[in-house]
Design a protein around this nucleic acid. Structure first.
Lengths: 374, 374
DNA sequence: TAGAGCCTGGACAACGTTGTCAGATGCGGG
DNA sequence: CCCGCATCTGACAACGTTGTCCAGGCTCTA
């Protein structure tokens, strides 16, 4: 069955792999559809069936279904009866093919299970809903290839717009799509190598404020635990940390920084290292919500108090002992802003790509106000 | 423009409203599409364009795009060049229309922003991904009408399958869809009035265990704060509470129960009421994660210790003082199980609807082991 | 009563893709 | 040199819907 000159197989409906052709990965769950009962759509009735049963023309059914004027009440009743009897439901695939718009938008984010993205996704969904569109979600798992795969699969489905939280840093693969009129907004991090709308938090300023807050409370040896600097947000927050330290005239020591370590076990070790030795840090700035959670755990085990400010708010942060001081970004607002811009692009009221930076908010709850325990 | 005899308007691509006809709500953002540049899909190239440019037939392009055998390397190269040059991407809408399967499944849940549903959604997505399908998400906001609206919109798009966390308790509107072969799995709560697959937690047993745990630690006056009993999970948990109390021979007093109050402010008041009076409760069983969070806040303000067991685990629960004892359900496992069944329905390997009940797990962390402070 | 105009209904093409089938080409063997 | 066969290619119909356009019947007016 396989063509020897090519690595591609017989295809089914699959997610794209190649960036331009729309070629797809070979599934081993091939041919499922063939075994299904019924021929297509499980023998669903079509408008033609309804028309036949009601004894009217095809277009008349279309008119009734779409509430278009020009149908006598009596005819409408007959059509309605046939619709009910057959359980007809309009096939939007065909509709989309005809009309050219899918009334759906795609959202590619890192991980739907992350408490930061849930509210963001929900906010995007609400805006979409207000515009009559549905939301297709995809998690990139922070993998650039998977991001591209998802984005292109969404484009092949002809979503009207895309909200993308980029995992990669080169988005030139989107150029044909943008040119073709797919509205696109990048969120949380800017797009790479292309000019596109983007909505981000002031990661630099937020981190700087957070660290400055610790400095204001007397700390000088301050640790920074962040994600890989190839991630834009992580790099910006690191920059903010450095800026605050420099503003205060404090030279940063390498031992105070942990970059690119994200799994709990290693974050734990990194934190413990900073807290040991002859001149341990007296405060920690945690670069994102997941890191913060782990750091909180480690600090809870320490005998001496260590100050902590985390980036991203966390549920129950106020109930910890001490309450957790954070630099909060509002996921819902970010999502709403991005989706708004997306639909304004679709409206045609928004033409030039812009970078929108939303402020962060320092929420003091206790952990960031602890004095240094030297 | 409006037909006086009907409440329907000229339509665009909108979410359904009527349960059978596929009629849609009237949007005031009407006619957006008309104002857009380009005609359809923003003038995207089609296979025909590619074929013309490459000087080959339409079908040959299709073959190349789909990796079908029977194309000379030389021809393939020419086609590939044309594809790259034009930025062609296959239109999956047309493909779907032709093939009859959309390779997408719908997930209707209550609120994507709820930390319980994020992981569940992600788990469903992962299974879908393994089967080459995309996930369309919708939040019902616990509104039965909105649930139906979403479900039917998804059906109109001909999703291959549906995972539904029901908000309503009558799902007969789904009968034509089921008959037409839309795979369906209900999650978290069973379907109403129809026979369908369903994956739920052992809410009754979990709540009973949780309450029994409190009783075992010496409590007799135990409060129950739950959601509206019309929600199946809430009713089951209430039943578990009553069962545990009855097993212990403790008559339940009305003042110990709060049902159907969910917003934080009122949960707070309900909790405070239970804790006041001549014979206040010495322990509280909180019916879900949102309630639990509020109750934790209230208890933190109390001078005397009050025991607490919550349904649903919460991040950072271990870091509270005392740690939060919970009856945990595993959202990811629930989602994975449901999605697995969905695809087995699509495989044809799963035929008779079944109810799957997943066990819960009591996680003791301190708050549930506090002795009664009379 | 004829003509103009409106209202209703239906035939037909088109959307972009894939499945079917038949035609074209090339090659080897008789 | 011709035939048969295998390989490659393309014309065409179909998927289910909507937009266009025209026909027929009705009402109203002159």
């Amino acid at each position: 069955m396989l063509d020897a000159t090519s690595s591609y197989n017989i295809m089914d409906l699959r997610i794209h792999v190649d960036d331009r052709t729309g070629r797809r990965i070979v599934p081993d769950t091939e041919r499922r559809a063939d075994r299904l009962p019924g021929n297509r759509y499980g023998n669903r009735p079509t408008m033609k069936d309804v028309a036949a049963r009601a004894g009217v023309g095809l277009k008349t059914v279309s008119r009734v279904v779409n509430g278009e004027p020009g149908v006598t009440p009596e005819t409408e009743r007959r059509v309605q009866e046939a619709i009910d009897a057959l359980g007809f439901r309009r096939n939007d695939s065909a509709r989309v093919l005809r009309k050219g718009r899918t009334a759906s938008i795609g959202l590619v984010l890192e991980d739907l299970a992350d408490p930061f993205y849930g509210p963001l996704s929900r906010a995007v969904e609400e805006v979409a809903r207000a515009h009559g569109a549905l939301l297709i979600n995809g998690s990139s798992a922070e993998d650039p290839e998977r991001e591209q795969e998802l984005v292109l699969a969404l484009c092949a489905r002809r979503v009207d717009g895309l909200v993308v939280i980029p995992a990669g840093d080169d988005h030139r693969y989107l150029e044909p799509e943008l040119k073709a009129g797919v509205a696109t907004v990048f969120v949380d991090r800017p797009a790479g190598q292309i000019d596109a709308d983007c909505v981000v938090s002031d990661n630099y300023g937020g981190a700087r404020d957070g660290v400055a807050h610790l400095i204001a409370h007397g700390h000088r040896r301050i640790g920074f635990i962040g994600d890989m600097p190839r991630i834009h947000t992580a790099a910006e927050r690191l920059r903010g940390y450095r800026a605050a330290m420099e503003d205060a005239g404090i030279p940063v020591e390498d031992a105070w920084m942990s970059l690119g370590v994200t799994d709990p076990e290693r974050v734990r070790r990194a934190t413990e290292e900073m807290l040991s030795g002859p001149a341990p840090v007296t405060a920690v700035f945690a670069g994102n919500n997941r890191v913060t959670v782990t750091v909180v755990r480690v600090l809870a085990e320490q005998t001496r108090p260590v100050a902590l400010v985390g980036f991203d708010d966390i549920e129950l942060a106020d109930l910890l002992q001490p309450g957790l001081t954070v630099v909060a970004q509002d996921a819902a607002t970010i999502g709403r802003t991005a989706a708004d811009r997306l639909f304004r692009q679709l409206d045609g009221t928004l033409l030039t790509p812009e970078r929108i930076e939303l402020p962060t908010r320092l929420i003091t709850r206790g952990s960031g106000e602890l004095p240094p325990a030297d």
